[in-house]
Amino acid sequence: MDATAPTYTPTSSGNVVVDGPLSEETLGASIVPARAYTDEDAFAHEQQTIFRSGWSWVGYAHWLPRVGDVRPVTVAGSPLLLVRSDEDTISVFHNSCRHRGMVLTEEPIEVTQRIQCAYHCWSYNLDGSLAAAPYFTRERRGTPSPQAKDRLHLLPVDSAVWAGMIFVNLSDDPRPFLESAGPLVERWSYIDFDRLHLAAEREFDLAVNWKLCVENFLDFYHLPFVHPQVGPVAASLDVDDVVEDVDHIVGGTYPRGAVGKAKKTDDQLPYLGEVPDEMKESQDIFCLFPNALVFLEADWFQVIALDPRSATRTVEHMAVFVDRDADDPRYAKNIADLVEVLLHVNEQDIPFLYKLQAGRRSVGADHTSLVPQWDQITAMFQTIVAKRAGYAQAGVGTDE
């Protein structure tokens, strides 16, 4: 069958894959070649064809809590600046002075009014406009003309802020953010993301390819074997594969994932908005392609965002959020217990990620056996990667 055209059956929780990219005939096929997990040329190619061609996660809004906060980041090799320009606005610019192209800062800074380039002291307002260029005309008070100032604005980058996350699009003709994230925004419309309160944040610097982090996140088969605290195999059998957008959003949901948890008590964490009754027991697990891994329950929200640094290195930025009303001493133990569990789950995965990475250097890695009964969502993620990067599919994983 055409791997880009799975068929679905509508359910109350989303579109469940019933005939996805995998079939019995595709056992042994490699949708993404093994070299794409180890080869630096393949990594550079993906940076351009995937991370530079559409929307990707680039940071968290809480990294810029105050007006004047500036944070440098890099996406697809391009240095960028995240800037809190006013209380309600985060802007993104290319981190390059309009005079000689020097990066404006390589460390997070807080400025009162202007971002200044240290080379010739050109400075920029928080909205990116040129504020001053001393001796521009070789005179003591010589300043650029209004026309020159307009032309020498910091170059903006298309950006969006949603659910506490910052996204950018470096393509020449960017589509609106909601064209890729819209189905998930709509699915979670009952959540008031303005109420998010950061409960914890951790960084994991891993010697693995970014795609393995995504594939592990979407692998529900391993849960009872690697994470016994999540429940027996029967719990994984209760997961529905969900495709909200065949090119951008794949994942799964436990319609009854919260069953067995402590009943709601006075110190139970408050819900993230007006949660419908049918969603109070569910867990949503999605990849917002390519690098935002999101996990939602009624009373907490987790993001594992991926910053690919090389073919064999990925920095995970993990953040756990609760409702702002949970910022109260009586919820402290519940939050601490939640964070401990989520961190432990992530740490349990790390040795397996390293072994998966090591295995990608075997010729056998191009003959792996994704199975239709468990791996449709993983295969769909790999199909998106293969489509964007132009990798051959259906068993072709070599350079021959």
Rank of each mutant, 00 (worst) to 15 (best):
V259R: 00
R114V: 15
G54Q: 03
V250S: 03
V396C: 01
V111H: 02
G359R: 08
R187K: 06
T26G: 00
V230N: 13
V345C: 05
P290V: 13
R195P: 10
H94C: 10
T11N: 11
P308D: 05
W162T: 01
V275N: 12
D399P: 04
D266L: 15
L342K: 10
P108W: 04
Y135K: 14
T26W: 02
A298E: 11
D240F: 09
L184Y: 00
D325P: 07
V67C: 00
P372H: 04
E87M: 07
I304R: 13
S171H: 09
T74E: 13
Y271W: 14
V294D: 12
N15K: 11
L293S: 01
E106Y: 07
L130E: 06
D277G: 06
W122L: 02
M165L: 00
E316N: 15
L104G: 02
S78R: 15
G14L: 06
K261F: 01
V246Q: 09
Q116V: 09
T38K: 11
E244L: 12
D349Y: 07
A389E: 09
T38L: 05
H62F: 12
D19C: 10
C117Q: 05
T368K: 11
W188A: 00
V226E: 12
S123D: 02
Y354I: 09
S85L: 09
I115L: 08
L370S: 09
P351S: 14
G390K: 12
E203H: 10
D219H: 12
D299S: 05
V233A: 12
D194F: 03
E215Q: 05
K355V: 13
F295G: 06
V233E: 14
G390A: 05
H45C: 08
I285Q: 15
T9I: 03
D238Y: 02
V67A: 12
V103F: 03
R195W: 04
